[in-house]
Design a protein around this nucleic acid. Structure first.
Length: 420
RNA sequence: GUGGGUGUAGCUCAGUUGGCAGAGCAUCGGGUUGUGGCCCCGGUUGUCGUGGGUUCAAGUCCCACCACUCACCCCA
């Protein structure tokens, strides 16, 4: 038997309904806030990701599905969506005219990590990006949208964590201060941090190894290094959140694993998921459009983890499964062909109707109708064919009557319309 | 990449100190000819994760591998 590959999975009926509900809600909320859908490919030139996410990140160093195509070009299954959206924004010169765009997209991402609860090698995100504004109000709106969405979905127990990572003016001094801080502490740092300290010193801050935490306990704080502009930006971000009634926790250790982030970053965390506690995350990336060959253009955005949302909602959401309202039980070949026509006519009118296509007895068909929670059963056999009437049975009341063929469909439609 | 746990029917799981592969649910049929739910009777469903090894005999003991799972790491 051929099985799916590790870290990949099938979303089967019964589960897919939940995903649809989540996606529908997210689309509606994003649309209310003025976002329009952009559809982008899942395969891109490898360089797009190495240049945007950063050469020294975990994603680029060890998690990407990268391969040579038949011509010899290096291509990568996207590990995230922001880079592609920015690429598209630049390629189609969406910044010409009005550079301000609110875009969203949804689809699968690919990272070759070790799978665990809430983490898969193919996972799904909804991304929302706002390009063309450097306003901290936009950052606040994004966090607000997440709060609204999670509340609509019934996801409780979430906390917004925020931070500011500064900008090219002030971050270098902070990085240097971090490096200076760990000088002489080599014995305390784990192997990863020892390697990271020069290449990506910000990552020292969120290492969970106890000795590293100890080493970083008195590490310098980005807040103290923010330049006046970044300081004001962050303050306005926080003020806007307060005005909107969004509770938040300022978390100076919220660093995030992609290099393109500047200034505001945020993450929505939950403790309903075990170790994988982030259900949405994002931040500002003011330098990315320029870095990918576009004009100087500020931007900000977030990604929501659909797999994790679905996992959380599994516990406390009842799914509506589509019961057929009508089941047609037919005895004999000729009756079955009549039933088939009726089923199709009812389906055409938007009424869920089912029948049995095999040559089974009436009892078996009644059992099936019951299991499918059908409201009505139409019975047709030899007697009904010769009388040109069908038996219409109300299942919950256990009562039935004979209806002429000519009136059957119309009557069933009326009954169902009146009942609901 | 590193650890821990788990792999037996479609699902949930029993299976003793090695001795004929099991239950519940699901599914199919029947309980007087054409009427569901409850009940009763019966049938179907297995590479015991895979491959080696020990043994007269392995689901059970040993080794390797694979998958799932949880955690580290990282993040959605």
């Amino acid at each position: 038997m051929i099985q799916l590959i590790r870290g990949f999975r099938d979303i089967l009926p019964g589960e897919s309904e939940r995903w649809q509900a989540i996606e529908d809600t997210a689309r509606a909320v994003l649309s209310d806030f003025g976002f329009r859908e952009i559809r982008i490919p899942i395969l891109e030139a490898t360089e797009l990701f190495t240049r945007s996410i950063g050469e020294n990140t975990d994603i680029v160093e060890k998690e990407m599905y990268t391969f040579e195509d038949r011509k010899g070009d290096f291509v990568t299954l996207r590990p995230e969506a922001t880079a592609s959206i920015v690429r598209s924004y630049i390629q189609h010169k969406l910044y010409a005219g009005d550079p301000f765009h609110k875009l969203f997209t949804t689809g699968p991402m690919f990272r070759r990590e070790r799978p665990q609860k809430g983490r898969y090698r193919q996972f799904y995100q909804i991304n929302a990006e706002v390009l063309g504004s450097d306003s901290p109000l936009i950052d606040a709106q994004l966090v607000f949208i997440l709060k609204i969405l999670f509340s609509k979905l019934g996801v409780s127990d979430t906390t917004a964590h925020i931070n500011s990572l500064g900008c090219p003016v002030c971050r270098p001094a902070f990085k240097k201060a971090l490096i200076d801080h760990v000088v002489g502490m080599d014995t305390k740092l784990c192997v990863d941090c020892a390697r990271r300290k020069t290449k990506n010193p910000l990552r020292l801050l969120d290492c969970k190894v106890p000795s590293c935490r100890e080493a970083m306990a008195k590490a310098p704080d980005m807040m103290a290094f923010l330049c006046p502009d970044c300081r004001e930006h962050f303050q306005r971000f926080k003020t806007a959140l307060s005005v909107l009634g969004v509770a938040y926790v300022t978390d100076p250790r919220l660093v995030r694993g992609l290099d393109y982030y500047t200034r505001s970053t945020f993450e929505i965390q939950t403790n309903a998921l075990g170790a994988q506690n982030a259900i949405a995350g994002g931040g500002r990336y003011d330098g990315l459009v320029k870095a990918l060959g576009g004009p100087e253009m500020p931007a900000t955005g977030f990604a929501i983890g659909l797999d994790r949302l679905a996992e959380i909602l599994k516990n406390d959401t009842e799914l509506q499964t589509g019961h057929p309202k009508v089941f047609i039980a037919a005895i004999g070949r000729e009756s079955r062909e009549k039933a088939f026509e009726w089923v199709c006519r009812l389906n055409e009118k938007g009424i869920p109707a089912e029948m049995d296509f095999g040559d089974r007895g009436l009892k078996a068909q009644m059992k099936r109708a019951d299991k499918l929670a059908s409201r009505y059963v139409i019975i047709v056999g030899e007697k009904e064919l010769s009388a040109k009437t069908a038996v219409l049975r109300n299942m919950s009341e256990a009562q039935q009557e004979a209806i002429p063929f000519s009136m059957l469909i119309k009557m069933v439609i009326e009954r169902i319309a009146n009942a609901s």
